[in-house]
Amino acid sequence: MNTTAAISARHVGFRYPGEAGDALADVSLTVARGSCFGLLGPNGAGKSTLLALLTGILPLQAGSIEILGQPVGRNRQLRALSALVPQDYAFYPALTVRENLECFAGLYSLRGAALRAQVDEAVTVCGLESLLGKRASSCSGGVRRRLNLAIGLLNKPQLLYLDEPTVGIDAQSRHFILDSIRQLQRGGMTIVYTSHYMEEIQAICDTLAIIDHGRLLLQDTLANVLAQAAEMPAVPELQNAKRLEDFYLSLTQHHLRD
């Protein structure tokens, strides 16, 4: 693993205009290049705000963030090196799969042979070959998730943010997407992965952070976190994933986040 940081965030804070409390307070974390970094936290914990700050969607209010060695912000060069796959189906339902891919490739200023090559590669990675002419609106949830991912691969990003990329799909599509992500990581891509599914985090991430109420509760390797989880009392016969979930709940508490 390349130990040079892909992401280095120091004392990051953010408060939305008109809000009384901080959405993020004094968050510091480091993501190594080539790693798959799991970002965990309950609803409203601050994960989306952190992703928005890392991707430059929100302006930095406090602290500093460096992405791939460059300060974050409205840095077009940096944006060309990273990509966000949002939790929403962030494409155009009225367009076909191919038209969506070509549209976003065009937004990355790709054209001609380069555009075709990148579209073909993303299509192959995400298994969309037979679906190119289909309107996105008539695709299944699994295909839409794969299209969402494929769009994120069009610029061959060094750093890929995946915001709950497997929500609401069947087991087959989930396994396909997780396999694709492992494949991408093996190719050297740094992955930041948020999910509420502990087994997914355990399956693909090598490091993780847990965030709640805008504060970072933990950042460590998966192995160390699982070791801590194993030391927890109670039910030793639990699977690792269940242990991880129990450990996560012990940190973030059981109460509902409405």
């Binding site: 928005a52 991707t55 430059g56 969607i57 409205r74 077009r76 060069q77 944006r79 060309a80 990273s82 990509a83 966000l84 949002p86 939790q87 929403d88 189906y89 962030a90 494409f91 155009y92 339902p93 976003f104 937004l107 990355y108 200023s109 769009i151 610029n155």
Partner: peptide
């Protein structure tokens, strides 16, 4: 609403695009 605008804002294009 679909988050496409959010995605567009992460792309290397002018915010006015």
């Amino acid at each position: 609403q679909q988050g496409t605008l959010r995605r567009l804002r992460t792309l290397p294009v002018s915010p006015l695009l």
